[in-house]
Write a protein that binds this DNA or RNA. Sequence first.
DNA 1: ACATTCAGTGCAATCGTTAGCGGAGCGTTG
DNA 2: CAACGCTCCGCTAACGATTGCACTGAATGT
Lengths: 339, 339
Amino acid sequence: MTIADVAARAGVHKATVSRALNKMTEHQVNQATARRVRKAAQELGYVANAVARGLRTNSSMTIGVIIPDLTNPLFPPMVRGIEHYLAPHGYTALIANTDGDDDLERAAFDSLSGRRVDGFIIATGRMHHELIADAYRRGVHVVMLNRGTTDVPYSLVTGSDAAGVTAAVDHLVGLGHRDLVHLAGPKDFTTSTVRSGAFLAAVGRHAGVTGRLVPTPALTIDAGLACMDELLRHGDAPTAVVAGNDMLAVGVLRALRQHGLRCPDDVSVVGFNGMDSTEDLNPPLTTVQVPHFEMGTEAARLLLDDIASDEQRSVTVSLPATLIIRESTAAPRRAALVA
Amino acid sequence: MTIADVAARAGVHKATVSRALNKMTEHQVNQATARRVRKAAQELGYVANAVARGLRTNSSMTIGVIIPDLTNPLFPPMVRGIEHYLAPHGYTALIANTDGDDDLERAAFDSLSGRRVDGFIIATGRMHHELIADAYRRGVHVVMLNRGTTDVPYSLVTGSDAAGVTAAVDHLVGLGHRDLVHLAGPKDFTTSTVRSGAFLAAVGRHAGVTGRLVPTPALTIDAGLACMDELLRHGDAPTAVVAGNDMLAVGVLRALRQHGLRCPDDVSVVGFNGMDSTEDLNPPLTTVQVPHFEMGTEAARLLLDDIASDEQRSVTVSLPATLIIRESTAAPRRAALVA
DNA sequence: ACATTCAGTGCAATCGTTAGCGGAGCGTTG
DNA sequence: CAACGCTCCGCTAACGATTGCACTGAATGT
């Protein structure tokens, strides 16, 4: 079932079939002829060979999407958002997981490059990131998602992290908390930097409120558990925790339970990201809802725009994050206030 | 950076480069020459153009993966399992979500076919499924994942649903429950049929135990909530519920909460699938752990085997599911037993 | 009536790779 | 020493689509 079969059946030349079936060139062919060609194609069940087209046009109509781990509930909505925008434009996403491993990431990038993807959406950004700097030097189209890089000026799509953290801090202070801790995530993530900065700034705006920054080695349940456990062991616990993401928050919840403490009675906890499952946690988690799906569509839009115009803009889009108040935050108990 | 550049640098013909760089044919070329070619390729940073190769060899080294919804925590582990097996074999997965919509599914299938994927892994099976029957007639390589179809004999990879349900029933009966309900999921899914059958069989093996089947329109939180709500309104509530999947179980938990009932004190609940988040639910959910990752790798293995040998086997692989007992199941209260 | 334009279509080259065929060179064997 | 086999490698024709160029015939302008 090639273009030649269709040409034979319609009684025209291959080239005419190609032109008739292509939106961009169908005006070059007589309407009646075009109809005949389309009919023939229809009857034969012909679908163009995207591989052959890709070779000739040097564009594969595919986008490489590099994420740390699809299993992290953060990413599926982004991926779906990406696909939601790509599909109507005829593009398909190729997804690769890296598990935060540099070698895997390099391998994935090379593999996707070999497949001649037209651009990348990369969600594994770090402040200094050699792979991404390389890509920039080679003129590869890239849009950063969620986390950025400081080395090169690729466009970036994020949630409005600063606003989210500020809202969380204001909410906690409003409840009466005076001693806050922020579990900050790895220092090399732009998100961590932004959120930490916003946390300190927000705390600073309230007199008599102290805010401590506790970096965590990763954004995982285990990291949250370990860091909170550490704090509790040292009798250093705050009355409220602003976690760098929901996974950390789940870890904090587990740590509290292990120490026989209750949330929010003993310690209030705020998550970050608004994963679906946070609603059914014990207790339902107050969290900052980030519009992941929209972040995906926006990243895809930016990338396709850049590809279409063959330029490399450098814009930063941050989509509004909103605080969802549930049951993991409450006024601190007097005991804690006194202590 | 094409094969011609490498050929020039190594001082050999294009064809020799191709042979030297290809595992299957490198024995056809002198070791010394091969080394020279590899060195040249290395120095130029040459990566083969997968598109051109695909055109020539009529194989794209890609696999289409069709799932209902990446956002459902069931699927990411499967996808990762698939990629885990595909990547070392040089294959890449193209993922498409259908949201259970037939038209979207058809569109995804056609789009992937146009991209000349070498085979499909399909997780959107229904008992009668026209698209899949079509594919079978056309001789397309397909492996069914999670849910099967009864129309055509494609291979299928599932969890051992029957064993899992049986374990859940035995566990509940062992705790003293005598009145069980199974939230069964849509009738058109093979998984529902299998689980329902296993439920009735397991219940039948215990004297004095009654088991009711309640079909649900979907496998979602909302469906679980609605069905359980219905049961509670009619005063028809059992002492224990075996949910068709974890989402339904979450819905059941919400319904209980809305009616002022407590789990497991008033009603015990068992989920199905073992999603990560079930561990932190309120209460932590007893569930049947299904090995999703392994299901993915197994499906990929079957598919690649079929592709390599160009046959279409018809095997059913069911991977062991295990009951994870947590806090959502306990002995029924005497009151409930008496009633 | 003749030059000029233009729409519509065919021709052939091309994208980068692979694979069948055959030839050159060399060693082995009867 | 002729015949044969073997290894290694080059030549060339595909794979299926797109696209610049050239051609045809009809319409238009002067």
